[in-house]
């Protein structure tokens, strides 16, 4: 077993697993960024429509 093949599944399968994991990580990062920007957009709208204080 090597560090690049922790499940002893062979180099090809290990490489495919790494690629899938990278893709999954990127998808999760993209989801977090989307939620963050969506929140900013909604907060921005609320900020603009908020009546002036005082």
């Amino acid at each position: 077993m090597t560090s690049s093949d922790p499940f002893n599944e062979g180099p090809e399968a290990a490489a495919a697993r790494r690629r899938r994991n990278v893709f999954l990580a990127l998808a999760l990062v993209a989801f977090v960024v989307i939620v963050f920007v969506v929140t900013l957009v909604h907060l921005g709208g609320a900020g603009v429509s908020r009546p002036p204080v005082g």
């Binding site: 599944e9 090809e12 495919a16 899938r20």
Partner: peptide, 9 residues
């Protein structure tokens, strides 16, 4: 079969 690629998903 060869292992699944992200394109298979």
């Amino acid at each position: 079969k060869s292992p699944a690629q992200w394109t298979d998903y």
